[in-house]
Protein backbone atom coordinates (compact mmCIF):
# COMPACT_ATOMS: atom_id res chain seq x y z
CA UNK A 1 0.00 0.00 0.00
CA UNK A 2 3.03 2.21 -0.29
CA UNK A 3 2.37 3.13 -3.90
CA UNK A 4 0.57 6.28 -4.81
CA UNK A 5 -3.19 6.16 -4.99
CA UNK A 6 -3.14 7.43 -8.52
CA UNK A 7 -1.28 4.49 -9.97
CA UNK A 8 -2.64 1.77 -7.77
CA UNK A 9 -6.20 2.20 -8.88
CA UNK A 10 -6.49 -1.58 -9.35
CA UNK A 11 -6.50 -1.92 -5.60
CA UNK A 12 -8.54 1.26 -5.36
CA UNK A 13 -10.93 -0.13 -2.79
CA UNK A 14 -8.20 -0.68 -0.25
CA UNK A 15 -6.44 2.60 -0.85
CA UNK A 16 -9.64 4.58 -0.45
CA UNK A 17 -10.17 3.07 2.92
CA UNK A 18 -6.60 3.92 3.88
CA UNK A 19 -7.34 7.59 3.38
CA UNK A 20 -9.55 7.67 6.39
CA UNK A 21 -8.07 9.23 9.50
CA UNK A 22 -6.90 6.90 12.21
CA UNK A 23 -7.34 9.42 14.99
CA UNK A 24 -7.59 7.57 18.26
CA UNK A 25 -7.98 4.40 16.23
CA UNK A 26 -8.08 1.25 18.28
CA UNK A 27 -5.13 -1.03 17.56
CA UNK A 28 -5.81 -3.02 14.41
CA UNK A 29 -5.26 -6.74 14.77
CA UNK A 30 -3.69 -8.62 11.86
CA UNK A 31 -6.31 -9.79 9.37
CA UNK A 32 -7.82 -13.00 10.57
CA UNK A 33 -8.20 -16.13 8.49
CA UNK A 34 -11.27 -17.12 10.47
CA UNK A 35 -14.39 -16.95 8.27
CA UNK A 36 -16.94 -14.28 9.20
CA UNK A 37 -19.51 -15.21 11.78
CA UNK A 38 -23.14 -15.89 10.77
CA UNK A 39 -25.21 -12.88 9.87
CA UNK A 40 -26.33 -10.66 12.75
CA UNK A 41 -30.02 -10.02 13.32
CA UNK A 42 -31.63 -6.63 12.71
CA UNK A 43 -31.55 -5.78 16.41
CA UNK A 44 -27.89 -6.83 16.65
CA UNK A 45 -27.18 -4.44 13.78
CA UNK A 46 -28.91 -1.61 15.60
CA UNK A 47 -27.00 -2.28 18.82
CA UNK A 48 -23.66 -2.60 17.03
CA UNK A 49 -24.00 0.75 15.26
CA UNK A 50 -25.43 2.35 18.40
CA UNK A 51 -22.34 1.25 20.33
CA UNK A 52 -19.83 2.38 17.72
CA UNK A 53 -21.54 5.75 17.33
CA UNK A 54 -21.17 6.44 21.05
CA UNK A 55 -17.48 5.50 20.92
CA UNK A 56 -16.74 7.69 17.95
CA UNK A 57 -15.25 10.91 19.18
CA UNK A 58 -13.58 12.56 16.18
CA UNK A 59 -14.74 9.87 13.78
CA UNK A 60 -16.72 6.64 13.89
CA UNK A 61 -14.89 4.75 11.15
CA UNK A 62 -12.06 3.24 13.25
CA UNK A 63 -14.64 1.87 15.66
CA UNK A 64 -16.80 0.55 12.83
CA UNK A 65 -13.84 -1.28 11.40
CA UNK A 66 -12.93 -2.76 14.75
CA UNK A 67 -16.48 -3.85 15.58
CA UNK A 68 -17.42 -5.26 12.17
CA UNK A 69 -14.10 -6.81 11.13
CA UNK A 70 -12.29 -7.68 14.34
CA UNK A 71 -14.76 -8.15 17.17
CA UNK A 72 -17.84 -9.53 15.44
CA UNK A 73 -16.18 -10.88 12.25
CA UNK A 74 -19.23 -9.91 10.22
CA UNK A 75 -16.98 -8.97 7.31
CA UNK A 76 -13.40 -9.70 6.27
CA UNK A 77 -11.01 -6.74 6.07
CA UNK A 78 -11.25 -6.91 2.28
CA UNK A 79 -15.06 -6.89 2.29
CA UNK A 80 -15.06 -3.98 4.71
CA UNK A 81 -12.67 -1.98 2.54
CA UNK A 82 -14.79 -2.60 -0.53
CA UNK A 83 -17.97 -1.57 1.27
CA UNK A 84 -16.20 1.53 2.54
CA UNK A 85 -14.88 2.41 -0.91
CA UNK A 86 -18.45 2.47 -2.24
CA UNK A 87 -19.55 4.52 0.78
CA UNK A 88 -16.89 7.12 0.10
CA UNK A 89 -17.47 7.21 -3.61
CA UNK A 90 -21.21 7.89 -3.35
CA UNK A 91 -22.39 11.30 -2.08
CA UNK A 92 -23.12 11.73 1.61
CA UNK A 93 -21.36 11.14 4.91
CA UNK A 94 -19.07 8.12 4.56
CA UNK A 95 -20.01 6.35 7.75
CA UNK A 96 -23.72 6.95 7.16
CA UNK A 97 -23.40 5.38 3.72
CA UNK A 98 -21.44 2.50 5.21
CA UNK A 99 -24.29 1.79 7.62
CA UNK A 100 -26.68 1.69 4.65
CA UNK A 101 -24.42 -0.56 2.57
CA UNK A 102 -23.70 -2.94 5.43
CA UNK A 103 -27.20 -3.06 6.90
CA UNK A 104 -28.75 -3.29 3.45
CA UNK A 105 -26.52 -6.14 2.40
CA UNK A 106 -27.54 -8.21 5.41
CA UNK A 107 -31.23 -7.43 5.82
CA UNK A 108 -32.33 -5.20 2.97
CA UNK A 109 -34.16 -1.98 3.81
CA UNK A 110 -34.88 -3.08 7.39
CA UNK A 111 -31.18 -3.68 8.01
CA UNK A 112 -30.20 -0.34 6.50
CA UNK A 113 -32.74 1.51 8.63
CA UNK A 114 -31.67 -0.34 11.80
CA UNK A 115 -27.99 0.43 11.25
CA UNK A 116 -28.78 4.06 10.40
CA UNK A 117 -31.01 4.51 13.43
CA UNK A 118 -28.33 3.08 15.71
CA UNK A 119 -25.69 5.31 14.15
CA UNK A 120 -27.64 8.58 14.12
CA UNK A 121 -30.21 8.65 16.93
CA UNK A 122 -27.89 8.62 19.96
CA UNK A 123 -25.41 11.19 18.57
CA UNK A 124 -28.26 13.45 17.42
CA UNK A 125 -29.85 13.27 20.87
CA UNK A 126 -26.56 14.16 22.55
CA UNK A 127 -25.68 16.95 20.17
CA UNK A 128 -29.20 18.39 20.40
CA UNK A 129 -28.96 18.46 24.19
CA UNK A 130 -25.73 20.40 23.84
CA UNK A 131 -27.35 22.59 21.18
CA UNK A 132 -30.20 23.48 23.55
CA UNK A 133 -27.70 24.37 26.27
CA UNK A 134 -25.75 26.43 23.76
CA UNK A 135 -28.86 28.29 22.62
CA UNK A 136 -29.66 29.10 26.26
CA UNK A 137 -26.20 29.85 27.66
CA UNK A 138 -24.17 30.50 24.50
CA UNK A 139 -24.03 34.19 25.28
CA UNK A 140 -22.50 33.60 28.70
CA UNK A 141 -19.06 35.08 28.61
CA UNK A 142 -17.30 32.17 30.31
CA UNK A 143 -18.84 29.63 27.91
CA UNK A 144 -17.81 31.75 24.94
CA UNK A 145 -14.22 31.72 26.14
CA UNK A 146 -14.25 27.94 26.60
CA UNK A 147 -15.81 27.37 23.18
CA UNK A 148 -13.28 29.66 21.53
CA UNK A 149 -10.55 27.33 22.79
CA UNK A 150 -12.42 24.14 21.86
CA UNK A 151 -13.22 25.46 18.38
CA UNK A 152 -9.54 26.17 17.72
CA UNK A 153 -8.69 22.67 18.91
CA UNK A 154 -11.46 21.01 16.86
CA UNK A 155 -10.05 22.78 13.81
CA UNK A 156 -6.65 21.25 14.55
CA UNK A 157 -8.16 17.75 14.75
CA UNK A 158 -9.61 17.95 11.24
CA UNK A 159 -6.46 19.69 9.97
CA UNK A 160 -4.53 16.58 11.01
CA UNK A 161 -7.03 14.48 9.05
CA UNK A 162 -6.41 16.60 5.96
CA UNK A 163 -2.66 16.09 6.30
CA UNK A 164 -3.15 12.32 6.59
CA UNK A 165 -5.39 12.35 3.53
CA UNK A 166 -3.03 14.53 1.49
CA UNK A 167 0.27 12.74 2.03
CA UNK A 168 -0.55 9.66 -0.09
CA UNK A 169 -1.26 11.99 -3.01
CA UNK A 170 2.33 13.28 -2.84
CA UNK A 171 4.11 9.92 -2.81
CA UNK A 172 4.59 9.88 -6.55
CA UNK A 173 4.53 12.42 -9.33
CA UNK A 174 0.97 12.66 -10.61
CA UNK A 175 -1.67 15.29 -11.31
CA UNK A 176 -3.44 14.42 -8.03
CA UNK A 177 -1.88 17.12 -5.79
CA UNK A 178 -2.68 19.78 -8.37
CA UNK A 179 -6.26 18.63 -8.67
CA UNK A 180 -6.61 18.65 -4.87
CA UNK A 181 -5.02 22.12 -4.67
CA UNK A 182 -7.34 23.46 -7.37
CA UNK A 183 -10.43 22.09 -5.60
CA UNK A 184 -9.19 23.59 -2.32
CA UNK A 185 -8.61 27.06 -3.79
CA UNK A 186 -11.86 27.06 -5.77
CA UNK A 187 -14.12 26.15 -2.84
CA UNK A 188 -12.12 27.21 0.24
CA UNK A 189 -10.46 30.44 -0.91
CA UNK A 190 -12.48 31.67 -3.87
CA UNK A 191 -15.72 30.31 -2.36
CA UNK A 192 -17.04 29.20 -5.74
CA UNK A 193 -20.27 27.16 -5.43
CA UNK A 194 -19.53 23.50 -4.71
CA UNK A 195 -21.83 22.07 -7.42
CA UNK A 196 -20.12 24.18 -10.08
CA UNK A 197 -16.65 23.18 -8.91
CA UNK A 198 -17.57 19.49 -8.85
CA UNK A 199 -19.21 19.55 -12.27
CA UNK A 200 -16.05 21.08 -13.73
CA UNK A 201 -13.36 19.31 -11.72
CA UNK A 202 -14.64 15.77 -11.31
CA UNK A 203 -14.63 15.00 -15.06
CA UNK A 204 -11.20 16.63 -15.45
CA UNK A 205 -9.76 14.60 -12.59
CA UNK A 206 -11.30 11.35 -13.84
CA UNK A 207 -10.02 12.06 -17.35
CA UNK A 208 -6.52 12.69 -15.95
CA UNK A 209 -6.55 9.34 -14.15
CA UNK A 210 -7.77 7.61 -17.28
CA UNK A 211 -5.09 9.32 -19.33
CA UNK A 212 -2.19 8.61 -16.91
CA UNK A 213 -3.21 4.94 -16.72
CA UNK A 214 -2.73 4.44 -20.45
Amino acid sequence: MRQTRWHSARSGATTWAMLEPSTEAPPIAPPSAVPPAPHPSVSELFIAFFTMALHGFGGVLPWARRAIVEDKRWMTAQEFNEAFAVSQFLPGANIVNLAVVFGGRLHGAAGAVAALAGLLIPPCAIVLTLGVLYARYGDAEALQRVLAGVAASATGLIAATVIKMSLPLLRRLSPAPFVAAAAFVAVGVMRFPLPLVLIVMAPISIALVWWTRR
Binding site: W16, A180, F184, A202, W210
Partner: peptide
Protein backbone atom coordinates in the same frame (compact mmCIF):
# COMPACT_ATOMS: atom_id res chain seq x y z
CA UNK B 1 -11.88 2.11 -10.83
CA UNK B 2 -10.94 5.21 -12.84
CA UNK B 3 -13.91 7.21 -11.58
CA UNK B 4 -13.19 6.25 -8.00
CA UNK B 5 -9.50 7.13 -8.31
CA UNK B 6 -10.37 10.42 -10.01
CA UNK B 7 -12.64 11.53 -7.20
CA UNK B 8 -10.01 10.95 -4.49
CA UNK B 9 -7.93 14.12 -5.08
CA UNK B 10 -11.09 16.21 -5.57
CA UNK B 11 -12.51 15.02 -2.26
CA UNK B 12 -9.20 15.70 -0.48
CA UNK B 13 -9.21 19.26 -1.84
CA UNK B 14 -12.83 19.78 -0.79
CA UNK B 15 -12.10 18.43 2.70
CA UNK B 16 -9.20 20.88 2.98
CA UNK B 17 -11.49 23.70 1.85
CA UNK B 18 -13.92 22.80 4.63
CA UNK B 19 -11.11 22.92 7.17
CA UNK B 20 -9.97 26.29 5.83
Amino acid sequence: IVTQAGLVPVSVGLFAAGVF
